[in-house]
Design a protein around this nucleic acid. Structure first.
Lengths: 246, 246
DNA sequence: CAGTGGTCTAGACCACCGA
DNA sequence: CGGTGGTCTAGACCACTGT
């Protein structure tokens, strides 16, 4: 019962062929057209029917593997795994995530200033201590409730945050429109108690548990663009990830 | 200043060529032989010098991209990003992580029984409610201190946990030796307060913040193998991840 | 413009799996 | 044994970058 969903490719499209195939297979899985346990037709057959080379088709299927949608086994085939309800955590901002989920976030800029980088921060951003960095403190709310307190540091050389309305625009959105392309981020997730000030902002009580995230993001030049320390109300937020064995 | 580390390949090794190259480049980056901002010699040159085809070399470099060690930019080159202190979270168990970090974990099995799967659990494991599942409760300690309380469910059809000494062997380790190959996992990370019983086990106080993780793991047949709910002391544990934009 | 990575082809041989 | 994915080759043309 090796399933074979309708896939068509458009060779005059600027979208890479492997991506066209991957998108259509992904949709078939997420829409339930291909069910968990189903087998996808093998590479050679699939490539043949679509008029593509085997490496190109392989590249398409590999992207499904990377997303955790299918698993492959030599001698057996490519099997559909149960589709996750939500997508895996990607290199996006909290704002992006909320917008995509159809929520309507609002942001309050609590503070913004240009200051010499403290040692701990300069280390994360790989810049010389004392170099000017923007320090941005924000409170993000959704559905009228406070969700997260975010502090971000951005080197002055990277962007001029003074000229941006950060209550209307997400930080990552600003980076994109400024021609900064984020490529990699390292993050650490843990938890701790809220102090009095944090509790006040998040409308909770001192001692409440907070979900914490620290992230350093790098752009396509290998440059550290942003270091952030975020605090989330765990009753309103969770991180979802997909792990794949390669 | 395009760096060119010493790389040699052994064609009679069973290790794939692309993997040999990737390993050596990875070590050069992690050891600081290649520094953040350095450029790696371009694909064509590198492939030529090593006597490999360009696709093979590309595959090697792609794995570095996936690990967040380098970023690539058309027309520019391949640039080394700052290497993370620790590796990214991989599809391993807590036990594996601790062993690799040179810590010596010990495990206490609190409870183990075969029971009909509750609705909530059968849903995660994609099995029929009421099907027998193992419920395993464990406490993991490291350096004499309690680190995590773990509850895992494993379908009875997947493994017979009754015949295993789970205080000496990690659950994932047992899966491997039983010929079960984990491939994908979906996890959700958040936080909450400890209740009295959890606090007692973790030698803390009720109300303390706990880092929580829920995970469902699938094997190479697309079968749900394990569902777990883990509670970590956040002062002793954090999750580290690397996000890559593809 | 020259240099880089991004995509794509049309094959080949091999390793592993299940029947 | 036949079927599957895993690896590898030797090219090709294109898109984007920075000078």
């Amino acid at each position: 019962m090796s399933s074979f969903p309708d896939v068509v490719v458009n060779r005059s499209s600027p979208v890479p062929l492997y991506h066209q195939v991957a998108e259509q297979l992904e949709r078939a899985i997420r829409d339930g057209e291909l069910l968990p346990g189903d087998r996808i037709a093998n590479e050679v057959v699939l490539a043949d029917r679509l008029g593509l080379s085997r490496p190109t088709l392989r590249q398409a299927i590999q992207s499904l593997v990377d997303q955790g949608l299918v698993v492959r086994k030599r001698g057996v085939g490519t099997l559909v795994v149960h589709a996750p309800i939500r997508r895996t955590v990607e290199l996006t901002s909290l704002n992006d995530d909320l917008l995509r989920a159809g929520r309507q976030p609002s942001t309050v800029v609590l503070d913004l200033q240009l200051q010499p980088a403290p040692d701990a921060i300069s280390e994360h951003l790989k810049i010389v201590a004392g170099t000017p960095v923007w320090r941005l403190d924000r409170l993000r709310r959704v559905a009228g409730r406070p969700l997260a307190v975010m502090r971000n540091y951005v080197p002055g050389q990277v962007a001029d945050l003074g000229a941006v309305d950060l209550s209307a625009t997400g930080l990552y959105e600003h980076f994109r429109s400024a021609g900064i392309h984020l490529r990699v981020a390292h993050q650490t997730i843990s938890a701790r108690k809220a102090d009095a000030e944090e509790a006040r902002l998040l409308e909770g009580t001192a001692g409440d548990p907070l979900l914490t995230m620290q992230r350093t993001s790098f752009d396509d030049q290998g440059r550290a663009v942003e270091f952030g320390t975020h605090l989330y109300r765990p009753d309103l937020y969770a991180f979802e990830t997909t792990l794949v064995d390669r």
